[in-house]
Write a protein that binds this DNA or RNA. Structure first.
Lengths: 338, 338
DNA sequence: GAAATTCCCGGTACCGTTCCCGGGAACGTT
DNA sequence: AACGTTCCCGGGAACGGTACCGGGAATTTC
């Protein structure tokens, strides 16, 4: 890379001081109109761009946000797009790191981003993360951070989350209204907050409708479509098989769907199904799959906005939790024509 | 954010000079074993992390890669994952910017990343980009860059691309072998290199099988599923409707599929269909959609590796073009049982 | 006409780190 | 005893930019 033009180059060629050039570039007072014009002209000619690295060193912030996500699937990619949008508007750039749902990778990524001196973090934690020291260290250093989607227990942080319980509740309630009597719940890793919240909603709906809960109908299947398929096959082999399934993700719902089709059962007549995320694919399958929609793009934008407000306020604001509302999208997989 | 410990803090507390601390931290000679131990211990205690920003200023490189992609859909997200993987391994961090297929946004992103002093760029150009000044300026400044997927005409740059012509050729040839006589081609924006290359492959296959080409069967439909659906509806309304469709993306193929289903036509008996990208969704639809698989993850990894090699070699290596091979995955949408 | 004000500009320190150079102390070599 | 090595260490400059302070010249004010 050729060395880029610096403020010194301009100063030298114009026989003025770097201070003056600096002032001229930033449209500050205390600089003659003619010199300013000369500076600006030469800057244009040399394609001068202020060196953000030097500024970062001086001002002690980098105008970059470290974004930590488990992956870049539909939901996260959409959320990242929202973050990006907001960040760009506010003059920030974004460093995205994927943990691939691995705790070790997450720790490494935090470290790297910290070394790069990001101004703070926007985080959706890996599902395998059970220790939170790496996050707590950030908190001790008073580094701003905002969590979104995947919450972390035992930490006082800003969060932007979905009302997960409500989402699962809507889904479960819907199936109950359609006449389902035995509703299974395909959950994620046992330690995952969103999975547990959704389970609460599922249980609450059953309780509300005075349906007895059967713990054996709750199956943990990671985020794996394959695994979900196997788990569903097992469910369908039981003598008292479920007539409805609520899942915590569309991937899992698809796994379930494959198992149901394989078995030759009809959807929704024999068994109704609801996914979570409202990925575009759900509307394309046949039958199309009902799913709980979460405003991913919005969530990203709000997380970024919260983060930036956090940065700009110097008196530390109290931690806030912003909860967004899910919306059940009913499709063929659960619409029982009466 | 609390101020992080610096090398000066350590030096002061140990009554030694910053030079010595610096040497100790980097395991250099010319430092006594005891002092080194003391430095390391104190560094640990203060959770000292070298300030990369200061280093960047001094060394004139930031160990960050600017990644420019049109979006984060399946293909790009997978490629970015490959880039990320490779970058992490080599000690680089990645700044991902999405252009949302907008030329203006792309220009802005180049500028921002340049201000952030990334060491170079890995780029897949926006489909709306027809002027390349923003890229050429990079080239003039000798800033390393590698293009992947979306090529740019008239520029001598390193590239990692798919053999797009071959991919479309395989798809078209396959349909011809299945007995299709009138094969339509759903293309992308007319200026998009990958679209044009694939068109060439399509035409080459027709020629090879001595099938006469009909320009009216080539329809440009952006990357829009909706538009593809409308375009296909129009195709199907013609008196001499096509009996096969080759598309340049799975999104477009899905649009086409919706139109075909709407019309009540059978796939593949009445009309056969092949997509491009081999997104997971293609295997889930019914009928499942044949698609040309491209090794996105690999492409990302190779692009990153090429980029890093480019950085490390100081004598400028000649521009290289690495071409990866596509692989046609045949599914129900085009498998005609004879 | 002296004083005060305005208008411009330059010098210097600083951000955190590395690198180069120089030099003192201890040791070994003749 | 004089010299050369080796081992450690510190001082300064540099990276590119901004902020603060101080000051000369021109202009205004009384």
């Amino acid at each position: 890379m050729d060395k880029a033009a610096t403020i010194k180059d301009i100063a030298r060629r114009l026989h003025i001081s770097t201070s003056t050039v600096s002032r001229a570039m930033r449209d500050q007072p205390d600089v003659n109109a003619d010199t300013k014009k000369a500076v600006l002209a030469l800057a244009e000619e040399l394609d001068y761009q202020p060196n953000k690295v030097a500024l970062s060193l001086l001002k002690k912030h980098t105008y970059t946000i470290g974004v930590l996500v488990p992956n870049l699937d539909y939901f996260c990619a959409t959320a990242v797009k929202g973050i990006d949008e907001m960040a760009l508007e506010a003059g920030y750039t974004v460093m995205v790191c994927q943990s691939n749902e691995s705790y070790g990778r997450e720790v490494v990524n935090v470290r790297r981003l910290l070394e790069s001196r990001v101004d703070g973090f926007i985080i959706s934690a890996s599902s395998q993360t059970k220790a939170f020291d790496h996050f707590k260290r950030l908190q001790e250093k008073n580094i701003p951070m905002v969590f979104f989607d995947r919450e972390t227990p035992d930490m006082d942080t800003h969060r932007v989350v979905l009302d997960n319980a409500d989402g699962a509740m809507q889904a479960t309630e819907h199936l109950l209204q359609q006449g389902c009597k035995r509703i299974a719940f395909l959950a994620g890793p046992p330690a995952l907050s969103i999975s547990n919240k959704r389970k609460e909603g599922y249980l609450a709906a059953l309780k509300k409708y005075k349906t007895k809960t059967d713990e054996s109908l709750i199956v943990h299947c990671d985020f794996n479509q394959q695994y979900a398929q196997v788990a569903t096959e097992e469910l369908l082999r039981r003598k008292k098989r479920p007539d409805g399934i609520v899942t915590i993700s569309d991937r899992i719902a698809i796994g379930a769907m494959l198992a149901i089709k394989e078995k030759g059962l009809r959807m929704p007549e024999d068994i109704a199904l609801v996914g979570f995320n409202n990925e575009p694919v759900t509307s394309l399958l046949s039958p199309s799959i009902s799913s709980v929609d979460q405003p991913a793009f919005e969530m990203g934008k709000i997380a970024a906005r919260t983060f930036i407000e956090l940065l700009n306020s110097h008196e530390k604001p109290p931690v806030s939790t912003i909860t967004l509302k899910p919306r059940l999208i009913i499709r063929e997989s659960s619409r029982i024509k009466v």
